[in-house]
């Protein structure tokens, strides 16, 4: 979209709308998370549900980063999505806002590493990796992952990386490809 870094009213509204849309999605997959968690808890693998679905929860960041191509877009998009989810009555309460910022900064880092110049698989791929590492680091503390034995930690990390790759990588790329074909985003910057 625009090459400038200034946010205009319509950008802010669009970002909010995208965030709300993702807030709705996050909220909708809540039951799926609960189902998976209940199924995995008896074998002590309940937290894996979090890692399996992580990719869906971090999609708003890379998508906003790609659509707006501005500094802070990924963080703001992911954060607003989290705020919306919290007001919907998500089951994580106040920590949702922190998670939103952590996830947003994670995906932002990927775009920042390319200097906000590349919007292709390089930046998206980097974003997938940074998101996985940053959110996993946060879960080491928040969800007590740090206490698990090393085998489980590696397994959870790999699951999370795969999930983030599928949703925040492949799916986001598919969406942005569809958007690119409409030329709506390039027309907006004119």
């Amino acid at each position: 979209m625009s090459k400038t870094n200034a946010w205009h009213l319509r950008d802010i509204i669009l970002l909010t709308l995208i965030a709300i849309f993702f807030g709705v999605i996050y909220w909708v997959i809540g039951p799926l998370y609960n189902l998976l968690t209940v199924a995995l808890t008896p074998v002590g693998l309940g937290p894996a549900a979090n890692d399996i679905l992580m990719g869906v929860w971090v999609m708003a960041g890379p998508l906003a980063g790609y659509v707006f191509r501005k500094v802070g877009a990924a963080t703001l998009g992911e954060f607003l999505g989290a705020v919306v989810e919290m007001f919907f009555g998500g089951q994580w309460g106040a920590s949702t806002m922190i998670s939103g910022v952590v996830q947003g900064l994670g995906s932002e880092l990927g775009f920042a590493l390319t200097g906000y110049k590349r919007y292709d698989w390089t930046s998206l791929g980097l974003s997938v990796v940074t998101t996985t590492i940053v959110t996993f680091g946060w879960d080491l503390f928040r969800n007590g992952y740090a206490a698990y034995h090393i085998g489980l930690l590696v397994a959870l990390f790999v699951i999370r990386l795969a999930s983030t790759f599928i949703f925040a990588g492949v799916l986001t790329r598919a969406i942005t490809n569809l958007l690119d074909r409409t030329h709506l985003l390039s027309r907006r910057s004119a």
Binding site: T41, G144, Y148, H149
Partner: peptide, 11 residues
């Protein structure tokens, strides 16, 4: 889920 995981999976 988190509590059970710690009981079953911690080092």
């Amino acid at each position: 889920a988190l509590a059970v995981a710690i009981l079953m999976q911690s080092r």
